[in-house]
Design a protein around this nucleic acid. Structure first.
Lengths: 164, 164
DNA sequence: GACCAATCGTTGTCGACGTCAATGGTTGTC
DNA sequence: GACAACCATTGACGTCGACAACGATTGGTC
């Protein structure tokens, strides 16, 4: 077993939160705490859905980013995804082991290693797209279509200025 | 050092996410992933804000719940907050060490230990209320007051059916 | 042309966290 | 009075994020 874990690790069981009680006024009054809570749950759901395919949310995010850029050095992956460079190493290791991704030497800089999406990786993304949507549907279940779009837009704006 | 850590642990540095780029259409298209991301960030901000007072988000959540019920056995804390019973032990240990909380024997059932908010705990909640609001303000910075309320309402509804 | 700071990927470490099994003490039940 | 169920607690294990340190490589500077 490598130090960074394997993509076949099982996802932890989610622990449901009872948020329908009067006491919650004191706890969930904070939007920040709500975000924290739902973020945990979202990660759990994503990992559970991805588990059958042998990957986790972080791998998936990396793959989806790669699908938009056609090759990036690990340094870029670190900055864009917000993961530590050392974390990228393990993720790329896992993905490369599954032949979803490939490390290529950068022609101009031998320090860099360009990570490119392999054909199997592209297929994987196509196949798991439906599962991804299913998770989002489960999360935003109680909301109407219009409300989901509103929520998404608001979260996006919060994320945009979410730096420094 | 105990096995469950101490309330004086330092909070990790947040790693900002660059979400203002075209590639993000492929990644942040998922509301679920957005929630996951913002949840992480929210937790980091909360822990950083609480750090000066020597506690972490989980302690804070426990305190705020206690403020609404006037005493609860640890079993209830576990179910209501969604933490494992073994996690509650450590949290209450920390809070009791700071005299913010008190363990009392349950009169009818000597297995149970009722955790009640001490006077210092109440004072602590009052004092840190402003810091909590500051975090939420920082998170929802780019939103107008009306949008914040919309976001909060939507998140609350998502959280309410967030069970099982 | 040789130092030298900066950069990149990598490894190892540490603390926080979630989960689970096992235990001692206690309760209620048959 | 035996026995299953419950409560708090302890311990073990694995994941995860953040960070320091290192070898290899680069680019700038004298």
């Amino acid at each position: 077993m490598t130090a960074h874990g394997t993509p076949t690790d099982q996802a932890p069981h989610p622990r449901p939160v009872d948020a329908d009680e009067p006491w919650m006024r004191g706890l969930h009054a904070d939007t920040g705490y709500l975000l924290y809570r739902l973020g945990l749950r979202s990660g759990q759901l994503f990992n559970a859905a991805l588990q059958e395919s042998g990957l986790r949310l972080r791998h998936y995010a990396l793959l989806r980013y790669l699908a938009t850029v056609e090759g990036a050095p690990q340094r870029d992956l670190s900055e864009r995804l917000g993961y530590d460079p050392s974390a990228i190493v393990g993720l790329v290791d896992d993905l490369e082991r599954l032949h979803l991704v490939e490390r290529r030497p950068a022609p101009a800089d031998r320090r860099r290693r360009i990570v490119v999406l392999a054909e199997a990786g592209r297929t994987y993304l196509r196949d798991t797209d439906e599962a991804s949507h299913r998770v989002t549907d489960e999360l935003t279940g109680p909301l109407s279509e219009e409300e989901r779009e509103t929520l998404h837009a608001l979260l996006l704006r919060v994320a945009q200025t979410d730096r420094g």
